[in-house]
Amino acid sequence: MDYIISAITTIFSTSFVTMAITKGISLLYGALGEMMTEKAGNMNLGIPGIMYMGAVGGIFGAYMYENNWSSSFSPFLAILVALAFCLLFSMLGGLIYSFLTITLKANQNVTGLALTTFGTGFANFLGGSLAKLSGNDGLAVVVRKTGKAFKTTLPFYEPMANSNSGFLKTVGEVLFSYGFLTYVCIALAIGLAFVFNRTRWGLNLRAVGENPGAADAAGVNVNAYKYIATMAGSAVAGIGGMYFVMERISGVWQNNALGDTGWLAVALVIFALWRPGRAIWGSLLFGGLCVLGTCMNVPDQTKEIVRMLPYIMTVLVLVVTSLRKRREDQPPQSLGLSYFREER
């Protein structure tokens, strides 16, 4: 009972909400990326690895920029460099996955898991090397300046935060205290919902994931769609990894920094039934559950139980949708299968 009351009071605190949102957004990025590749019929279990690669790419770019490539610090350039490396690394991961599963028709689960092993190792290796270079006993890479640049808020946040009205303060804190990538993510989710449902690309993409044979016969270039969706999805997921280290932990890299964020993102895709709109509030829910324990000041073991809830809820969604058998709620029909036109 006490826990419930404490949980309720926690949920309404601004610090909880802001933490839930930053955690949620990093999940949302990952989930949107995974969703894009899954819509094309590619079950990419390499997303956790790709998020690591994106994260360490951001850190690498920022570190190089802060320490080696410039004498004066320009926040704009820092963001640009970090973003460039983030995209470079994460899309490299996406390219490996795409080439193996699409061109070479390798098993998607196996390739994905190998990519996660590779990506995590790559990130920890590069991060560890940077940490050694930076002399922090090899424990952490700190790029606070770039982290701060990423957290630049919208211009009207400052006045709101400094206003005397408690209401304005709270609204500002809850809605506008985040870096630009937060809003980009929400916009991306809405944009993707539009693309999936209303545009030719989205239509063709869904057809590729549902029934590549039919899409092919209708003149859709199946492999091109798979490649583009997987690469773009990897880029988005990679940004999610970078968002996590820049926005949520303010520009610090440690070994295994992302924890199980990538797997939660995969879970979120299922929870959201492959719909970007549902993923937005799903990400808030998952983010909230992840940070609830921390904010509630409960014993550690309780936190672990709370952290289990997103997975349990995902399983429940999976079970309920398979019971209801509504066709629109099912995974893309050819998810996990590679396509070869001349298969007989």
Binding site: I96, F99, L100, L104, A106, N107, V110, T111, A114, L115, T117, F118, G119, T120, G121, F122, N124, F125, G128, N255
Partner: peptide, 16 residues
């Protein structure tokens, strides 16, 4: 960590 990277690379080639 380096081991993971190298194992990953070997796996990619064998899978391919």
């Amino acid at each position: 960590t380096l081991a993971d990277v190298l194992v990953g690379i070997v796996l990619f080639f064998i899978i391919g």
